[in-house]
């Protein structure tokens, strides 16, 4: 009996198995098919870009946590890897590597650590990194390598082509879209792979259906009402990547189901408006960032109802 080391802590004395780390590892696993798709379509340079952004994120996280917050273990929850990977997925595979690195440093340094680290940031760090790159290096960020072309020809993404040169939606081969044979960032192509990853996360109950469904449904509805092609609208412009993996980021999305519905619908609406009436062909990044900024307010307005509380009559 003397040999026992008895611990005394508060209740409960059991807990669910899930940890932040296991959740993040699952997210990484869910992103891998889409990354593989990117490698298949754009070549090994995609993997290199991802490696660089992940390294940049991990390094920045480690250094900031170590010297600003005095925490040594901040890499363990694997959130930095997820940020790096997500950032890479939004970049063209042809991006110069130093830029990719700078994007990673900015994503974590400004997007996350400046707010106080894990769980404190308002905006999705990967998108902060992406928008930073988009504003700083507009040319490199909008030069998309053509799919399956080893000689590195570049071209426009589907949405910008439609917007700028009037490519007819009817001439687009939907099957090619679904497997990712289109111009775009290295992770946004390959709808099937993205959907597979999303279904996996949903089935493991790591993310809930609410946000992605609200986004996709609102965009589909708007497209149908305005006479645009619903399929093209859904499968292009990084929408799936954003809706499945970025808008569902725990830290920057609302807490309650009600809040999630509001948040998802507004992301859909803003995306659609930016795409069709704004100056950027892809709207999802900005839409998510805008709604990230509204999340604290949404949380305030969509508090859960305390048990037994009567609605005021």
């Amino acid at each position: 009996m003397e040999g026992n080391r008895i611990t005394v802590t508060g209740s409960p004395h059991v807990s669910a198995k899930r940890t932040t780390q296991s959740v993040m590892l699952n997210v990484i696993a869910a992103l891998l098919p889409a990354l593989a798709c990117g490698i298949w379509i754009f070549g090994w340079r995609s993997a290199l870009v991802a490696a660089v952004t992940i390294a940049a994120c991990m390094l920045t996280e480690f250094l900031c946590a170590r010297y600003m917050l005095g925490r040594r273990d901040s890499l363990r929850d694997c959130t930095a890897i997820v940020t790096g990977l997500l950032l890479a997925m939004t970049l063209p595979s042809s991006i110069p590597l130093p830029m990719a690195f700078a994007g990673g440093v900015f994503a974590i340094g400004v997007g996350k650590m400046a707010f106080g680290g894990s769980g404190q940031n308002i905006f999705n760090p990967a998108l902060v990194g992406r928008v930073f790159l988009l504003i700083s290096f507009p040319v490199e960020m909008t030069t998309w390598p053509l799919p399956l072309s080893p000689d590195g020809l570049t071209g426009a993404t589907l949405l910008s082509a439609m917007k700028e040169s009037g490519v007819d939606a009817a001439s687009i081969d939907v099957a090619q879209l679904a497997i990712g044979n289109m111009g775009g960032s290295l992770g946004e192509v390959g709808a099937i792979a993205l959907v597979a990853g999303w279904l996996y996360l949903t089935a493991r109950r790591i993310i809930r259906l609410v946000i992605p469904v609200a986004i996709l449904a609102s965009i589909a509805l708007l497209a149908a009402v305005t006479g645009n092609s619903v399929v093209v609208e859904l499968l292009s412009g990084g929408l799936l990547l954003g809706a499945f993996f970025m808008a569902t980021d725990y830290v920057t999305s609302p807490m309650t189901t009600k809040g999630m519905i509001v948040y998802g619908i507004l992301i859909g609406v803003i995306t659609f408006v930016i795409r069709h009436y704004g100056s950027y062909p892809e709207g999802i990044s900005f839409a998510i960032l805008i709604m990230n900024g509204c999340t604290p307010l949404i949380n305030k307005l969509t508090r859960p109802r305390v048990f037994g509380e009567r609605r005021k009559r």
């Binding site: 611990t7 802590t9 004395h13 059991v14 807990s15 940890t19 932040t20 780390q21 959740v23 363990r76 929850d77 959130t79 680290g117 894990s118 769980g119 404190q120 725990y250 830290v251 609302p254 807490m255 309650t256």
Partner: peptide
């Protein structure tokens, strides 16, 4: 195994 000790990491606001 029945009552494992857990590490405390920052809240990720998962809801």
């Amino acid at each position: 195994q029945e009552a494992p000790l857990r590490d405390t990491t920052p809240c990720v606001r998962c809801g």
